[in-house]
Design a protein around this nucleic acid. Structure first.
Lengths: 201, 201
DNA sequence: CCTAAGCGGAAGCTCGGATTCCGGTTGGCT
DNA sequence: AGCCAACCGGAATCCGAGCTTCCGCTTAGG
């Protein structure tokens, strides 16, 4: 692989991550190419379709998530503030924002990316562990689960262009509100609790 | 206007509200026509473009919001639970969900709908009043404002199809989380507070 | 200096969705 | 009952955004 080709590849992945974070995963290929400063031809030579591109970005993304999570879990004074800090970091619009798109990608896309799947699973497990710990320590309400946390992240992260203007302007503000709602001290009864909402026979 | 034409008009508005609530404001005109059980031709005869349709729905919508707000404000035991009840009601996916689309409509659209603008303003004022009251009574944290509440509603309401699957499946759950975060008892420091975040000179 | 790898971006294609239009239908008045 | 203007449905047409290909030109690297 020639040196310039290599450089372009990096520029493309970086640009795609940025543009998709800004305008959603469905952004025109040409917009990505333009941002990367290359022609669409170059883009297509490297990535036969959008999914390949998403998968490539996802790989970077998940790695950085895993890294940040590890760091948060280790350095925070307690599990809940670690979790809070991690989510705030991860949703920063500057980071690539692809969790939902990744989740929706057909499995075939990852055929030759075994390592990626492993990292992803490990990340989810790490998050789950941190959540449980935060709950055990009493910082986080017990009726919220890991999947809720992931959804919360996705809510702000996946289609920034479609968010109401005020939310898009300061997503961090709303993130704080949500996180505050996840605190143990905020707990009210949440719907969807199987024990409570089961149909009475 | 012939009686059947009148009936169709109502069916169209109702269908459009439902379909847009489900699939976003950009949903194909044909989908609306199908749901209403009429041909696209009929749709276009009544509403020259999408905006006219949105405005028509918006009128209904705002009226029902205003009504619900009034009721909540009067009947709830305290302002905060009234506000909470109102938001939970308003975000119910069964209701028309158009606030964002309405806000983004060009002003020309409302040229011959003076009454609508009035209702809308009055609704906003009522909401604002309820918020202030909830804060004064100590039920709601003071660093959240009316605009935040509106944005929160929009967040769940505007493009349901684009929400992460888990959120879409039980939006009420996330709504509760957000509302819990708005309770006075949940308050942590929120970013975006001008007094605190002003650049230090 | 040579050549194969690599590049850019115009051209053509696809397809979802908007919009038109007209032959057939029907409400409602006489 | 009979008439006709209002109204309807939906096939046909139009349109443009975005995808994908392809080839003549450029350049890295030996």
């Amino acid at each position: 692989m020639r040196a310039d080709a290599r450089r372009n590849l990096d520029k493309i992945v970086e640009a795609a991550a940025a543009v998709m974070a800004e305008r959603g995963v469905g952004v025109p290929m040409e917009a990505i190419a333009r941002r990367a400063g290359v022609g669409v031809g170059t883009l297509y030579r490297r990535f036969p379709d959008r999914n390949a591109l998403i998968a490539a970005i996802g790989e970077h993304y998940v790695h950085s998530l895993a890294e940040a999570l590890r760091e948060a879990a280790e350095n925070a004074p307690d599990a809940w503030s670690g979790l809070r800090g991690f989510v705030l970091w991860a949703v920063n619009p500057g980071r690539a924002a692809l969790a939902t798109a990744l989740a929706e990608l057909p499995d075939e896309t990852f055929l030759d990316m075994a390592e990626f799947a492993v990292t992803r699973r490990r990340w989810l497990e790490g998050l789950d562990e941190l959540v449980r710990r935060a709950q055990a320590e009493g910082g986080m309400r017990a009726d919220v689960d890991t999947e809720d946390v992931v959804s919360l992240m996705n809510l702000f992260v996946c289609h920034p262009a479609d968010l109401p203007a005020h939310v898009a302007a300061q997503p961090v503000r709303f993130l704080h509100l949500m996180l505050d709602g996840m605190q143990a001290s905020a707990a009210t009864r949440l719907p969807g609790d199987p024990a409570e909402d089961a149909p009475r026979v």
